[in-house]
Each structure stands twice: as structure tokens, then as C-alpha cells.
Amino acid sequence: MRFQNKCVVVTGAASGIGRATALLFAREGATVFAGDIDAQGAEALATEVETITAVGCDVCDPDQIKALMEQAATACGGIDYLFNNAGAGGALAAVDEIDVDGWDHTMALLLRSVAMGIRHAVPHMKHRPGAAIVNTSSVAAIGPGYSPTTYAVAKAGVLQLTRCAATDLARYGIRVNAVQPGFINTNIFASVLDMPKEQFEASKAAIAQMSSHVQPVARAGLPGDVAEAVAFLCSEQGSFMNGTSMIIDGGLTIGPRHTWDQNTPGLMDAIQAAP
């Protein structure tokens, strides 16, 4: 019960990583406020554990973010942990084709929402023992090739925001870190491709199969893998971590396939085999 008597706010809590994290915190003693634009999904989550409260929240609207934080703080007397997790795939167009509305919406959803989550939570977190914020970035922040361009840029911004917020908030005893998921088996990939809901499960199976071929850990990442990292960063065990990020990707980003698959020829092998 690492989080007994603690108050936690999780955005994007109705599904995937947010849902798994909200459940983990609640089952370890926390009171959780689960915010999501999918109010019905958040309500369904709240029926599973009595210490979870569902709150409808569109993180593209700063007023709704503020209301979520105020509701949690009023009920608990303050906020101990914030997980800025809400998001989606965003605009798919390349940088030479994207329109300004697609760019702005993606940045509002993935980057501005994190800044405003911090902005409106901090007044309720100052000087609370062990207070911590975790933001969801992505392996896409490392470089191109993992996601659409606008998503990657926004997630790289989340990493820099995390570092800057850690310095800004150290005076209040608030730590700020990030997680960088890789291929986690959630609905985000289906939503990026605008799949109908009936194809979601099929897409998850395809992702699970693909993962065994593109990363050293031969299984798809699960929402619970990221939830455990978030809980660690908030817990006493992670209390010496600040302004940094944890990559949870099954080794996806350690290098090209030949670095971990002996059956795949590398650059030197290709050179030596050349006539």
C-alpha cells in the first residue's frame, strides 16, 4: 500500500496506460481522480474500485483541466501525484503538407495540456511530502521514424517541459519526471489509423505479433508495464529521480536489428561480404 492516503490525478484514464495506472494507484491505497474526455469510459473504470472518481475532462480546454484539479484538491485537501497522460495520435500529415489547425490541435492535446496540467495542479501540490508529477512522452521524442512528425515534435517538447518544470518546482519539493513508452498494446494505434472499433482487437493482435520482430523483448508492451514505471517514479523508491525520463520500450530504441539479432547482418557484415 505505497500510496495509502494519497491523492492522485490521472488524465486519459478511461483506457490504456491511464486506466492501468489509475487502477494500480487505487489498489495500492490512493484516492484517484480519473479524468478523460470519454466520460462513460471513466465512469466504467470508477465502478471497478470505489476509491476512483470519474471526471469528464477535455485536456484541450484549460478550464476543464483547472476544474479537475480543483475537484481533486477540494475532496482530498490537496494533490500528491499528477500523471499527465491524456493524448492521441494527432495529425498524420508530413510537415510539408500539414495544415495549421492539425498542427495546433496536436500541440494543444499533447504538449499544452501537460503544461496546463502542471500549471493548475501545482497550487494544490506545494510542499506536500513526496509530491510528484509524471508526464507521458514517447520513444518518438528520440527521433523520426516512430510516429507522425507532429506527434514526435510534441512528445519531444514534453521531455523539455519535464526538465524545465523540474527546475521550476524544486523549491516547492515537487519532482517532475517522464515516461517514454514504445509499442504499448493500446487503442492509440487503431485511433491513429482511424479504425472502426470492431477492428481494435485485431489491431492489438497485429501489434503483439509485430513487436516480436522489431524489438529484443519478444512481446508487446502492456499498459501495466508503463503503470509500474509511473508508480515507481511517484513512490519513495523513486524519490531521488527528478527531471529525467524512463524508456519503456522492450529495447526498441537500443539500435538497429542487427545489434540484438545475430541472424541479421550488420553494416560490417555487409561491407565484408561486398565484392
Rank of each mutant, 00 (worst) to 15 (best):
G145A: 13
V134G: 03
P144H: 07
V122R: 00
A131W: 00
R128P: 02
V139Y: 13
P129Y: 10
M116E: 15
M125S: 05
K126Y: 11
N135Y: 01
H120G: 02
A132L: 10
V122E: 07
V122P: 00
V139T: 13
G117W: 04
S147I: 03
G143V: 12
A121Q: 06
A121G: 07
V134S: 00
M116W: 01
V134A: 14
S147W: 01
A121E: 01
K126C: 11
P129D: 14
A115E: 04
S138P: 07
I142L: 15
Y146E: 15
I133C: 04
S137Q: 11
P123T: 06
A132R: 06
S147D: 14
Y146A: 15
G143N: 08
M125E: 02
V139I: 15
S138V: 09
T136P: 01
V122Q: 07
S147T: 09
M116I: 00
K126A: 14
H124L: 08
P144L: 06
A132F: 09
V139E: 14
A140S: 14
H120S: 13
P144E: 08
G117K: 10
I142R: 15
S137F: 00
V122H: 02
Y146F: 15
A131D: 05
G117I: 09
H127T: 12
H124T: 08
G130F: 11
H120C: 10
V134H: 02
I142C: 07
Y146L: 04
A141G: 10
G117T: 10
G145E: 12
M116A: 08
H124C: 04
H124A: 09
N135V: 13
G143Q: 11
V134D: 03
S147L: 04
P123K: 09
I133P: 00
G130Q: 13
A131C: 03
R128F: 05
P123V: 09
P148W: 01
A141L: 10
Y146H: 15
P144R: 05
H124G: 02
V122S: 02
S147Y: 09
I142S: 14
N135C: 14
S137E: 06
A132I: 05
P144F: 12
H120Q: 06
H124N: 07
I133T: 07
S147M: 11
I133Q: 05
V139D: 10
R119S: 05
Y146W: 14
V134W: 11
M125Y: 08
S138H: 08
P144D: 05
S138I: 02
A140G: 10
M116S: 10
I142N: 12
R119C: 00
M116P: 00
H120I: 08
G130L: 12
S147G: 10
T136A: 13
N135G: 07
V139P: 01
P148H: 03
P123D: 09
T136G: 00
N135R: 08
A121D: 00
G130C: 06
A141S: 15
V134P: 00
S137K: 06
P129S: 11
P148R: 12
H120D: 13
A141R: 07
H124S: 10
A115G: 11
N135P: 06
I133D: 03
A141Q: 12
P148D: 04
N135W: 09
V139Q: 14
I133H: 01
A141T: 12
R128C: 02
N135K: 08
A131I: 00
H124R: 02
H120K: 07
K126F: 04
V134E: 06
I118S: 04
P123H: 03
G117F: 03
G143F: 07
A121N: 01
